[in-house]
Nucleic acid binder design. Structure first.
Lengths: 265, 265
DNA sequence: ACTCGTTTATGTCATTTGACATAGCCGTGG
DNA sequence: CCACGGCTATGTCAAATGACATAAACGAGT
């Protein structure tokens, strides 16, 4: 866990498992700018196959690594963290999940979660039992297509992170992550852009950043301060502010083409 | 490119684009131990949708980063390397592809290859034009299922690599990669196991290892030597030999459950 | 307002890893 | 057989990053 001693991870806040069944027509993903909503026929299918919604408070663990992977979900609202734990306690945060993302697909095949998932903010999820989800996907070509699409995107994200960990020095690495998060926030419509600057209000601790970037906690702290003083990225505990997006984009070689509209299920 | 100066990448050997149409019943993947072959109905579909085979000599680039992603392929024989280049020449090898793996799916959506692919050994590929492949997948639920399965596996592999880069020190990192490659070799039946030891005969340069693990070339070299002297991993230019699999498995915390039989297309 | 645990911050020092320079090696092609 | 280019190896030194210790800030709960 962030290179050296450390605390055990998420933990405060109460579990909150409200089971709701809001109709899909009121789905909060409906008119997110970067997402394409399913058509009415699809909505009906989804409504028939999903098992309901679930709300999770910030800090709560949603799926535990090693648990049976009998359900998947789409993120309706909120931001979550996906990570892998090694036996000795080291933790690698593998990706951050935004509204519209599909979580838990891997375990639908392996039977067991290869990673854990924790809510970074209060979160609402649309749940599917594993079997019903696979039904959906194999019965409806459009869903198959969309799931493959989402998988390909997730793969792409992981590859970008891999490049960051393998090739970027600490400073560039942190800047990359900040930018990546903000871009996803922009796309998802949860990060407002004001002129050349943007802000994503998601609380992420420096320890979590460290565990995502493979840096020590201390070094992460110092790098964050350096970026702040340089006026490039202001990453406080409560969110990320980038005063000049184009600057940071240039620094990390951001490819603006990389943000096509995403389907969701 | 492996942290500092360096050569430009692959390059020797002649391009060799034989277009064959061996029937699927003689497909070399047919009776690989770790793969499940498609049934006869599937075979017919595949035969109708694929555009033929292609042979590529060791060292040749198969797909260029940035090229139009108008085709995908399944690896029939051989081992390839998938990597991303940054503008300034840094290179991150993102994964190594084995027989049965599907390559090029990402670009089927984005239109443009986000990564390059180079053959590490002489290689045979089963080609699909993008459109025909997507037809296949959306028309036949079984194929959709298999493609999603393969995507999920690829994601899993990338996550493991991410853990290695983020959390493992050089030595463990190299050992991890060696083991991962050998395990895939075992599964695919291209690496013989003799008692407690196994050997994978795939030529990978230290520069390529360095670019996969995010280490400098020099440090990679030293780490390889250390592992060799310790009798744990003998990674010569021509292949990887692990004298005691269980030792290395213990060192990197290998999960033996993680090798289910793979479908292919 | 106080207390406690978590998070952020800072100083000092140790270690890992990278950079540079150079030499030997090995296969390929003339 | 030799020459060349890429790969591997080794020494020395520099830089980036990690470890440890400690303190200040912050937030939730009493």
């Amino acid at each position: 866990m962030h290179r050296g001693g450390g605390s055990a991870g998420g933990g405060q806040g109460a579990v909150d498992i409200r089971q709701l069944n809001q109709p899909c027509r009121t789905c909060p993903l409906r008119d997110r700018p970067g997402l394409v909503a399913p058509d009415t026929a699809q909505r009906e299918w989804i409504e028939r196959h999903r098992s309901g919604e679930r709300s999770v408070a910030r800090g709560e663990e949603v799926l535990r690594q090693g648990a049976p992977g009998d359900r998947l979900f789409t993120v309706l609202e909120g931001v979550l963290m996906r990570y892998r734990l090694l036996e000795d306690g080291r933790r690698q945060v593998v990706n951050i999940m935004f509204p519209g993302d599909l979580v838990g697909l891997q375990a639908a095949f392996d039977g067991e979660m290869s990673h854990g998932v924790t809510a970074l903010t209060d979160t609402r999820l649309c749940m599917f039992p594993r079997d019903r989800f696979m039904e959906l996907v194999t019965a409806q070509p459009r869903f198959a297509y969309d799931v493959i699409w989402l998988s390909a995107r997730e793969e792409d994200a992981l590859e970008q992170h891999l490049v960051a960990l393998g090739q970027r020095p600490a400073r560039e690495r942190v800047a990359y992550l900040a930018l990546w998060l903000v871009e996803r926030g922009l796309q998802t419509g949860i990060a407002p852009q004001i002129g050349p600057s943007a802000t994503l209000r998601v609380p992420i601790t420096q320890g979590q950043v460290a565990d995502m970037l493979g840096l020590s906690l201390v070094h992460t702290n110092r790098t964050l301060q350096a970026l702040r003083k340089a006026g490039q990225v202001d990453w406080m505990g409560t969110g990320i502010h980038i005063p000049r997006l184009d600057n940071v984009r240039a620094m990390v070689g951001f490819d603006p083409q990389g943000l096509p509209k995403r389907p969701y299920i």
